[in-house]
Design a protein around this nucleic acid. Structure first.
Lengths: 237, 237
DNA sequence: CTCTGTCTGTGCGTTGACGCACATAACGAA
DNA sequence: TTCGTTATGTGCGTCAACGCACAGACAGAG
């Protein structure tokens, strides 16, 4: 179920908000509003992408799924960016799965139209490339964080990354799903979440997380979060 | 100490070998041949890049250095690619260090000339973007591998990645340096390397590694290696 | 209200990697 | 050759995370 997007909706996505007025006017008729439920798979590993997605309130997680079924998140996309960079990078597909981590609204556009607009080489083109570089930093830092930091730190990082992309302080997400994203045990998340709850940073009831004390979370996170945050601001702010 | 590059040298780099003849003729006068010693830092985290590098026999490692001094590799670049994608992506810099992992030759070109050629939007432009996507896959898979796989598997992956980019079967690299790249303990590499040596896959004497049995190494590696390899072939092959 | 499925909490043995301390081994300069 | 430096091997104790098993706790369907 899709409907055409208004300008008000479109500029809730930071990338679309950053393009020039005439470019946005050209894009708007091609942008369809779409409501995404939690868990929906936007595209599957190796599958040719036929749309690009600009989330406004939804959050999309980029995952790699191992042959044995275990998984790990490599990046997360919200109203700060777009899903489907392979379309304009030239590969048309990636060996990853994109799945809705937090239900909400996204704008979608046909791949061919995306390519056409990208080829014009305007500010939209530059913005897409700068966003891609920011995403590379996020993925790089995920690699570093996976190597060197504890589950506790990574949960803080994950919560902050989500909170940044969320219109509210509430996050609907079971511990089991978070564990799949981070590529750790569900029990590991239980322990880490309990510690955060005891510290008063979050409340957590059956898949309903509320961020109570953001500065608290920030005190528990590793430097990886700030590195990525700073780089996003520098490249896109 | 640099000298102008010949066409024969240039096409040892796969990216340069892939551009059209007229584009290569335009690039050649701007490409300087440069010999890089082991350990040399090509650029430092946050430093504005003023050159792009196309290795032919050298291998460059992309590292993130933590505030406490520990480090982890996020990607590796050899004759398959280029160092300095931030120049055309628009960020001009990244929060990483690029360091010579294996001494050898590289071609370098001024950042401004690189931007000019990229803006022309020919096959070179497309090739750079496709390479960037391949690099994203490599970084992503590093993140996954860091999360889910053992030091043994990662050492195999690292050796194979290096071997792919090397003109010989010999690799000059101490266990201490490998440990810094992988972000693990030196002793962990000692153990893993001993196992590989016992299996007859490599010989290892004081920083001088020889790959003896590549299929053997491939039998010990996780799927991450093949995923990246396949993606490079698909995007650039 | 009960039943059923889902989500969270907890315990326990195992393991892979860490940190530290030192022993051995090779190379290179004097 | 000798000596200092660098590289590798090895043995601990420690710890974070794992795998498994199971106990509560809650929500929604009927």
């Amino acid at each position: 179920m899709t409907t055409p997007a208004t300008k008000e909706e479109a500029i809730k996505n930071h990338l679309l908000a950053g393009v020039k007025a005439d470019e946005l006017d050209r894009l708007l008729p091609n942008l369809q509003l779409l409501s995404l439920p939690l868990g929906q798979v936007i595209y599957e590993s190796g599958e040719k992408m036929d749309h690009v997605y600009f989330p406004t309130t939804a959050i999309i997680s980029l995952l790699y799924i191992m042959e044995n079924g275990s998984s790990a998140e490599i990046g997360v996309v919200g109203n700060d960016g777009m899903v489907g960079i392979a379309i304009f990078m030239g590969g048309d597909t990636t060996p990853n799965r994109a799945v809705v981590q937090s239900a909400g609204i996204t704008l979608k556009m046909k791949a061919a139209l995306m390519k056409d607009e990208f080829t014009l080489g305007g500010r939209f083109h530059n913005l897409c490339l700068r966003y891609t570089q920011a995403l590379i930093t996020q993925i790089s830092q995920t690699a570093v964080c996976n190597r060197l930091h504890s589950v506790d730190q990574q949960l803080c990082r994950w919560l902050l990354l989500s909170h940044d992309r969320l219109p509210t302080d509430r996050l609907i997400m079971t511990q089991d799903l978070i564990a799949n994203m981070l590529g750790v045990r569900r029990e590991g998340i239980t322990h880490a979440a309990k510690r955060l709850q005891k510290a008063g940073y979050i409340s957590y009831v059956r898949g309903d997380i509320t961020i109570l004390d953001r500065p608290g979370l920030e005190s528990g996170v590793c430097e990886c979060y700030q590195v990525v945050r700073t780089e996003y601001d520098r490249l896109l702010g």
